[in-house]
Design a protein around this nucleic acid. Structure first.
Lengths: 253, 253
DNA sequence: CGGGCACTACTGGTCGGACCAGTGCGCTAG
DNA sequence: CTAGCGCACTGGTCCGACCAGTAGTGCCCG
């Protein structure tokens, strides 16, 4: 009979068990951001292991962005608030080795941002709409201040939209993907022709998206958002992948 | 003048420098998947540090999914192939944070799976379509074998769709989100009424999705996929969030 | 009495050496 | 030529030590 199915046992190393215990405490709220871990010498007592083992566990937790430890601080390692940065590193690594193609990332972002725009059109409150309008104004002013300033204003607008969508997952994933894409093409971006014209066009498209959101037209907001991304990134995507993105940009979906 | 802008110096710890060197070698191809790292005792010589330091670096690399070391293997730690699985842990952590509500996760998954279905309808090859049909048949057989078997067949079908979509990011994020959602409601899922009826209904909806993909009707495939998720999860979502999901399920978007 | 400063008791970072269970490879015996 | 054994070496863990640095204490001086 196949009744009792045995689980494959994995030899769990001591430091892994510590990592799991801490992650568990962190997941169920027993350990909150801002609180402190005991010192390494305390922990080696609590876990009944050597300091080397405790330290290996702490290094893993630190590399995951869960804690931070500074030498000399008698209060122990600090539990950090969650940050999207922990997603960025592995994603950037995948993209760098071309395990994930640029076209794929752009497509992913079109999906996410389209959805964010759609949801924002449905749920944005009046104060959120007002904030978006202000951000749009900031973008207009930032055109004269050069690309870095404009880019910052652009991010601010997008964050407002993501916030208004009411879905943090979409916002965070989109943000991370954006950073990775920019990292892949930043060199080419620097010698783009006529940056002012690009910024003006970008502003115009953002305005269109905003108008669609304001009149609660989710479908248009989604399509316009995807289209804007396509226009901006298409020239950096290999030609044979472009058609796929173009059809997604105009899709009713 | 603002000419020379100083970079904030971060006191880099020895093990961090090692991690960076290895990541660098891994990024520029000097270290390829399948190759081996020198033994820890060799590395402590090459980097001129103690074994503890080498080991802390290796633990970080291992927790990032870049290498794997087994005790006793004289060939040293193995360099792993890059896998999207390295996104799973941080993404799951993000989803487990308190501020992410169940409704948000379901919504996120509706967006992702809708997009996957849409893209699969556009790009699925004939062999991929055949594979989906086979998987659908497996689901039908699995109904009698109980929920675990059915669930496995269900996952297999979804993976085929994700693969056909040509976008790994969408597939991985959807998969991870699925796991997190199931983790949140698994207790309630166990005492669901009439599981056979639920499985039959699920199978019917999958068939509809498949038919839409086969006739290249992306919009329908997306909508059907979202609808199926809504039907399955709605009862577990707080009532006041349900309307939001319902409107997304039926959206033309 | 208040504020600045040295002191101290810790912290984390690194080192070196030690032991153990386990692995893979080469050598040997059949 | 092969089957099996032994050995050299692996990673996992432990111990004890030293160093530079921090934060809080309490003293001393103004």
């Amino acid at each position: 009979m196949t009744g009792t199915s045995f689980q494959p046992v994995r030899a769990v190393r001591a430091y892994e068990a510590i990592v799991e215990q801490v992650e568990e405490a962190l997941g169920n709220g027993a350990l909150r951001p801002g609180s402190r871990l005991p010192s390494e010498r305390d922990l080696m007592g609590q876990f009944a292991v050597s300091r080397s083992t405790v330290r290996e566990a702490l290094r893993v937790l630190e590399s995951s962005g869960l804690i931070r430890s500074r030498p000399g601080d008698p209060r122990g390692a600090e539990v950090l608030p969650f940050s999207a940065g922990s997603l960025r590193k592995p994603l950037a690594r995948l993209a760098r080795v071309q395990e994930v193609r640029l076209g794929e990332l752009v497509q992913f972002r079109m999906v996410l941002e389209g959805a964010a725009n759609y949801l924002a059109a449905q749920h944005a409150s009046s104060v959120q709409l007002a904030a978006m309008e202000t951000a749009l104004g900031r973008m207009r002013e930032a055109i004269d201040a050069g690309r870095p300033a404009f880019s910052a204003a652009d991010v601010a607008f997008r964050q407002l939209v993501a916030q208004a969508s009411g879905n943090m997952m979409i916002g965070v994933c989109g943000e991370v993907t954006r950073d990775v894409i920019l990292g892949l093409i930043e060199d080419k971006l620097l010698r783009a022709p006529d940056p002012v014209a690009v910024m003006r066009e970008s502003l115009r498209q953002h305005s269109e998206v905003f108008e669609a959101i304001r009149r609660r037209d989710g479908a248009s907001a989604a399509r316009l958002g995807r289209g804007a991304l396509y226009d901006f990134y298409a020239s950096y995507v290999p030609e044979d992948e472009r058609a796929v993105l173009a059809s997604l940009a105009q899709a009713g979906s």
